[in-house]
Design a protein around this nucleic acid. Sequence first.
DNA 1: TCCATATATCATGAATAATTGATATATTTG
DNA 2: CAAATATATCAATTATTCATGATATATGGA
Lengths: 116, 116
Amino acid sequence: MDTNKSTQAFAALSQATRLDVFRLLVKAGEDGLLAGEIGEKLQVKQNTMSANLSVLLNAGLVKNKREGRTIRYYADMEGVTAMLSFLLEDCCGGQPQLCQPFIQQITCSTDNCNDA
Amino acid sequence: MDTNKSTQAFAALSQATRLDVFRLLVKAGEDGLLAGEIGEKLQVKQNTMSANLSVLLNAGLVKNKREGRTIRYYADMEGVTAMLSFLLEDCCGGQPQLCQPFIQQITCSTDNCNDA
DNA sequence: TCCATATATCATGAATAATTGATATATTTG
DNA sequence: CAAATATATCAATTATTCATGATATATGGA
């Protein structure tokens, strides 16, 4: 991961529709969602949604898989990991106590996870 | 945290100079950095850097504190937490195993931290 | 108070990105 | 192969963002 790839990922999440799409895919988990389903849920025109999905894809934040004539999209957690690792690089190195509360809240240790 | 506030934060990180600034501040930890120091390190003109710092500030990703005639900037980890919690909301809820590897890598449990 | 230093704001031109109608491509079905 | 369905690409307009010169504000020191 480098600065360019990372800014591309943040840019992909900097627009309301795409952020909504990504969050839907995060919630959908392994099941993913069909491109058409996403457009319908978010009430976005077909070509606009296609363009937005393409931005997320190019940014490495989502993956897809053709299923017949439909295409299923998934959140790409490895892409998110790469982006965030770059963003937070060396955070803990110098002053661990600064990062602890942050990590507590993001991870499954608090309320956003039931059994992990 | 809502979609608007969150897209604002991602937009702030979607430009190379601002991403570089934020990463510098993450590494700087509690010591922070003076506005001038940041501009010098990154070789960015004074007014351009000022504008970029202002974007990060408005996005809730950095804080600052005046010290005489200089101003010291810090990464705001609470802001980052809010942004990421919103992004990853309900990720673990449905399919915890999907998120585990991601969390392992971001947190201090692996190699990006020495003693936390 | 006057000057120097550090940072912020304003106005503007240039570059980028977003939306959308029209159209193209890929897949399935008859 | 023709029609139907799902998604992608193209072209054009509009909107947003960026960098920067000029200038303003804030603080400290003589």
